[in-house]
Design a protein around this nucleic acid. Sequence first.
DNA 1: TTGAAAGCGCTAACAA
DNA 2: TTGTTAGCGCTTTCAA
Lengths: 347, 347
Amino acid sequence: MPVSSKEIAAQAGVSQATVSRVINNQPNVREETRRRVLEVIDELGYVPDATARSLVTQRTTKIGLVVSDIVNPFYPELVESVEAFARDSGYAVLLCNTQRDPSIDKVYARFLIEQRVAGVLFTSVTPQSTAPLQFSQASIPVVFMNRYLRDLPVPSVLTDNVGGAYMMTEYLIGLGHSRIAFIRGLPDTTTSQDREEGYRRCLADHGLALKQALLEQGDYTREAAYEATVRLLHTTPSPTAIFCANDYMAFGALDAASKLGFRVPEDVSIAGFDNIELSSLQTIGLTTVEQPIAEMARRAMEILLDLIEGQTAVHEPWVEVYEPKLVVRKTSGIVASGARRKEVQGK
Amino acid sequence: MPVSSKEIAAQAGVSQATVSRVINNQPNVREETRRRVLEVIDELGYVPDATARSLVTQRTTKIGLVVSDIVNPFYPELVESVEAFARDSGYAVLLCNTQRDPSIDKVYARFLIEQRVAGVLFTSVTPQSTAPLQFSQASIPVVFMNRYLRDLPVPSVLTDNVGGAYMMTEYLIGLGHSRIAFIRGLPDTTTSQDREEGYRRCLADHGLALKQALLEQGDYTREAAYEATVRLLHTTPSPTAIFCANDYMAFGALDAASKLGFRVPEDVSIAGFDNIELSSLQTIGLTTVEQPIAEMARRAMEILLDLIEGQTAVHEPWVEVYEPKLVVRKTSGIVASGARRKEVQGK
DNA sequence: TTGAAAGCGCTAACAA
DNA sequence: TTGTTAGCGCTTTCAA
């Protein structure tokens, strides 16, 4: 049972109000009194109860951070940045990992509202999610980052996903690829949709037909991309390049290519999106589209704190877009002139 | 401003106590009354305030999870497991990422105590940390996992780090290696110390001298291991095998070897510890020592919840040790008979 | 500069 | 089965 401010007051021979003034660094406390109170606080190891404080002030110093899959290395980078900013601003982070399951999403929304969090940062919102609505009903500020909801006026921090994917596709076409596959992320996510859009638009602009057989469904996980890549590399003619909607899936694609005996990039080029830290490993060397993850996370938190502290009632513009950047490494190359190894082996 | 139970009571024509009974699913409420109350709750979108509840019940449903570096892929795996278990048990997780900085540790300890968390799971405790003491003063249950503090009677969930490192070292010796380097993790961490101990003991048991030049200091990060590996590979004679205190550092070692033109495993074998998920990638294929991360995390949470819910006053035994397992992949091999490439190039 | 008193939203006796 | 009452630990008027 921890000591309370009442006991501190008694010990120091002052009122609770004075103790409160001292711990909140308010003026109008005699220096001698302040000293005595601090002494007793130190002696008894008193730590104020945030719970009780919140009840009266009607504000908390917790924010919710909702991510869809903490094991996908994209998220830890983002979490680190959010966390550091939150900590520096005096907020703690309640981490909510939905594991890509909308029902868990609902559980967490309820939980965060019960906790009366000061605000929520959604990094992986889906249209099925009712959470953003629940928060706005509870008048808890919400910011989206990474993904967003079309037509929902929630401040969002994004990358130009269409542009980034276009850039990558154009680069691959420039290398001579014409059979470029695309592995989607979770359907219904704007990141997947927008990146696919960039891919499609670029193919069209270059007079290349979109082949349904080269469009595979993934879910942002390595495993799904592994399976999708196996399917793709078994089609005839198989793609000479595979563009994955995120880096983590590209890792799975690399794995599959390697398992099936395809050399990268000689037999097949593989590209991702995000430029997570591990993509730069020499042994991986993934060609990808970079988004400034840490910077975007920081900015999203900044907006959220503005909203919380009432600097801004309505944040205009709703959407802040960061520019993606093409990062070429060793998983991409020109189309080989000869037949692919697989075909050579097969016949 | 959210609605309160008082308003629900007024609307439903009952007392606040009855509303409380309904939301806590207590018996002794007439079915008809319960229905009416639930109706009003639904209508007004009432969500109880956990802050107020905690104040009177004197217990919260938040636990603190302290990790040292969320970007190290070891931690997300652990976090996922802890989180899932916590959620299923009705607890939310306050994530505290100390970024390997003891001063941040202190900030978080204070914060978690203010929040009156129900318990704390430390995954990366260091002897400098005063946090565990602070929590025990505040009578908040604490469990260690991964690392522990010697002679501090705190329940700890660990791998047999000495044994695991011994196993790996013996395996490398069996391949014919005699110049085996070891890259330490952060000094003062039991994981680093115990793994080094296993390495030393095995060398001694096999009559191999410990060479100081082959002992490098790391800090569990890729970057530090990269630098350490560069130094190691520049010594003469350079090691034929490098054993890193964790997988994440092994990634850095692989990078350095590759940059310096050393082939793995022909010129130098590289091994890690943890068997994080990414180590199994075909392009990495790291030889390592596996610890059952998710299982250990689950167990640690289980112990913590036992402690919180008072099932167990004192948890005996203090330490639960899991068995590590040798995982051989492609970064390790027999010592090449000829000179290493580097030497060939050099002369 | 300080203290007394009220009250944040809830739960838990106890009484009815 | 339900309501009344007190109080969790703090902050915040208001008065002294």
